[in-house]
Design a protein around this nucleic acid. Structure first.
Lengths: 236, 236
DNA sequence: AGGCCTCTTTGCGCTTCGGCAAACAATTCG
DNA sequence: CGAATTGTTTGCCGAAGCGCAAAGAGGCCT
């Protein structure tokens, strides 16, 4: 009841629903605001709520072996968080950390399960979303398998500006704070390697940005780096 | 109508359906038999059918950059193949190659879409399956990011015997033919590295098997290799 | 049986990248 | 306003594992 079902209409996961259904769903939601660094849920916790990002950006990470956490994906407004199917009794497999002050729509898992059963279109919408998410994860798996670190980072940055790029004068800004550490955790490398590579590209004016910022100045060059066969290691 | 809906009852994707619904679905299916090496579909082709593995094993691969194809997953009896949601007009993102003589149940995409709309439980069942598949892909992504090649291979083998292990006298056999090249493509390494590692483990009698065979003789040792901190590189 | 073809093994050099160590810079906090 | 915290840069070393090259080995086909 707290946020207009006007907004729900645009979301792909609600695309197949009727107005009445959307209204029912909207009226069962509550809103929750989280600040940067807070978590919506943590790896291993009971799944007892269903989340949808209204505004802000959230990273989903998991602790892997000895290295620091690996980031599985970054989610943007309109995307659901956590298991979307009937997850009664299951546990979260990831930790959801807010990158930028964030509003979430929250449903108790029990009501969500009921919606899933009562509204045939809902599961179909979710199916599309999860299938797309699977496709993205598969893309990243292939990148990890086939590409060296610089190319993986180039692909990542292109994906980031595609998902959350904001145009500025002569460049595109990733419009949420992201650290070098995050970039490393997204590409399966170390902070140090990521830093080296980004600094190098910054010298060539391909990218820019300061602490926690990332902006792309030269998209074609980046596409080139992502695709090309060899990387030029020398600075000047 | 060619295969008993008895069998459909057990499959997770049909779990939520009524008997009548299952019968309708079963009666719309046709069966297709494929020999080892044949493909159910290829990367880039129009999606115009929905597949379910009745028997046999299928590998889903995608061509990645320069290196040979990467295997995204190996699917076993009972699992669906390809996009499961309404995929009218989309294209296959993977190539499905049969590893072992195989029977597939096939539905025209048009009928499948109709089933999805008419039977609320169907999309929910698929959602569960795809969500699990996403989880597995995420696990692999993390392995790729955090583990060295030997450990990735150890994890892979454990996963294989878990999914398709057949107990023999004093060992467990992966009950479909798999090459070293496949193992490399599943773990994001090269045929050569994979061969070296497997040969080494074979000398220690941890694993065994000949051409296209893989059997595990010492599961605990393998678990150890998958988990442990350091790898012993020396042969004898 | 012979030959082809696929699959596997093995050796060696070289590059990429991770690990370690240590400054440096920007922010926040007391 | 200085100190602590957090994020970033950089250099050096060593090793994991990839690329290249080539030889075995087991099957399959005619």
């Amino acid at each position: 009841m707290t946020f207009a079902d006007q907004n729900l209409r645009r979301l792909p996961i609600f695309a197949a629903l009727s107005d009445t259904e959307r209204r029912d769903i909207a009226s069962a939601a509550s809103l929750r605001c989280l600040a940067r660094g807070e978590s919506a849920f943590s790896e291993g916790a009971q799944v007892d709520e269903f989340f949808l990002i209204v505004s802000g950006h959230v990273k989903l990470s998991r602790a892997g072996a000895h290295r620091d956490a690996v980031i599985l994906q970054i989610e943007h407004p309109g995307e659901p968080l956590g298991p979307t199917g009937d997850a009664q009794g299951r546990r979260q497999t990831t930790t959801a950390t807010v990158l930028r002050d964030c509003t979430l729509a929250v449903w108790p898992m029990a009501s969500w399960s009921r919606f899933l059963l009562d509204m045939p279109g809902l599961a179909m919408g979710l199916l599309q979303v999860i299938e797309r998410r699977l496709a993205v994860t598969q893309d990243r798996l292939i990148e990890m398998a086939c590409l060296d670190v610089p190319r993986r980072i180039a692909h990542l940055i292109l994906r980031l500006i595609d998902q959350a790029g904001r145009h500025e004068e002569d460049s595109i800004r990733v419009d949420f704070p992201i650290t070098r550490q995050d970039i490393a955790a997204l590409t399966g490398t170390t902070l140090h390697s990521a830093s080296r590579i980004l600094t190098h590209w910054e010298r060539q004016r391909i990218i820019g940005g300061g602490r926690r910022e990332l902006l792309v100045r030269n998209v074609p060059a980046l596409v080139d780096l992502a695709t090309a066969r060899a990387a030029a290691p020398e600075t000047s």
